[in-house]
């Protein structure tokens, strides 16, 4: 017992002894700590699992034994859920719902991620420039962002689509333009905070250029809030794009897309509720899982939460 006690005492008296104990072991970085927090968070794990399953399903669509999502079979129209051969029934043109849902999910998820990606890239660049260089750049960029934010987002998206013409690609562009100001603001505020920290000053004293400081020091520190915003926004973008399609501005029939399916199905809601409820449910589940993931990331990347 005694030698152990002595060892403990030594640890207290001499902090380097404690360090010796951990010798050689690579320590946890900020990202690894975040990962550990997420694994402990049940709600966000549910979100991750759900999202993972959805993504697998959408990715595997071409190899799954699915019927052609646009093949019309008028003899079998408006079949209810559970019909042999059409597990989730058929729509008003006799197309297989399961196949349309999965193929539609591919479109929606791709729109969501790409639209967020576009908004993220442009918003980040604008925010970094505005926050770092300040003065003229800040005024010009942020006033323009304010103008974009002053419009109701649906109205702005509709206006952009009206200018570009309806279609899937233009919808994606429209919803991502709507998203740019939010990212620009997040990045700008982080940049304003970090650009005056002493570690940035230390880089200037070492002779680092602006570009080096922005890319190596300010941008990595802006990442946590960006990741959170982006993960929450994928759901929002899917919803917005589906909304545009529902209004007939986005994806055009006969393409399988959840917004289009909802819009077509609503006419038959009394006779065949599944035609509109199923795509609605799909949107709900994907957006929910993305929100759970986003919330989990927010808690995990927040340095104040333990």
């Amino acid at each position: 017992m005694k030698p152990q006690l002595q060892n403990e005492q030594e640890k207290v008296l001499n902090p380097t002894v404690v360090m010796e104990g951990k010798r050689g072991k690579r320590a946890d970085g900020p990202w690894k700590i975040a990962c550990k927090k997420i694994i402990r968070d049940k709600a966000s794990m549910v979100g991750f699992v759900l999202l993972f399953l959805f993504l697998c399903l959408f990715l595997l669509a071409p190899v799954l034994p699915l019927q052609n999502p646009v093949e019309v079979n008028l003899a079998k129209r408006l079949q209810p859920i559970g019909t042999p051969g059409n597990m989730l029934g058929t729509d008003h043109l006799g197309r297989d719902m399961l196949s349309r849902l999965i193929w539609g999910g591919r479109v929606s998820v791709v729109i969501g991620f790409i639209a967020v990606g576009i908004a993220l890239v442009f918003g980040t660049i604008l925010g970094l420039v505005a926050g770092y260089f300040q003065r003229f750049f800040d005024t010009v960029i942020m006033r323009f962002m304010d103008i974009l934010m002053a419009f109701p987002y649906v109205l702005l998206a509709i206006a952009i689509i009206a200018a570009l013409g309806p279609g899937l690609l233009n919808t994606m562009i429209a919803v991502s333009i709507v998203g740019i100001p939010y990212y620009a603001r997040i990045v700008r505020s982080s940049t304003l905070m970090y650009r005056n920290m002493e570690f940035v000053l230390a880089q200037r004293a070492l002779g680092a250029g602006h570009w080096h400081i922005i890319v190596r020091h300010i941008f990595p520190n802006c990442l946590p809030p960006l990741i959170v915003a982006a993960s929450l926004d994928v759901g929002w973008m899917i919803l917005a794009a589906s909304g545009m399609s529902f209004l007939g501005l986005g994806a055009q029939p006969p393409l399988a897309e959840w917004g289009v399916m909802l819009s077509e199905g609503q006419k038959y809601i009394r006779v065949a509720p599944h035609e509109s409820l199923l795509p609605g449910l799909a949107i709900f589940l994907v957006v929910l899982s993305l929100n759970l993931v986003g919330d989990g990331l927010r808690d995990a990347l927040d340095p104040k939460s333990k």
Binding site: G29, P30, M197, E198, L201, A202, A205, L206, H217, N221
Partner: peptide, 15 residues
Amino acid sequence: IQMIFQDPYASLNGR
């Protein structure tokens, strides 16, 4: 010419 800073928490990039 180099500099040493006051706040050892703010002068190192945590990432």
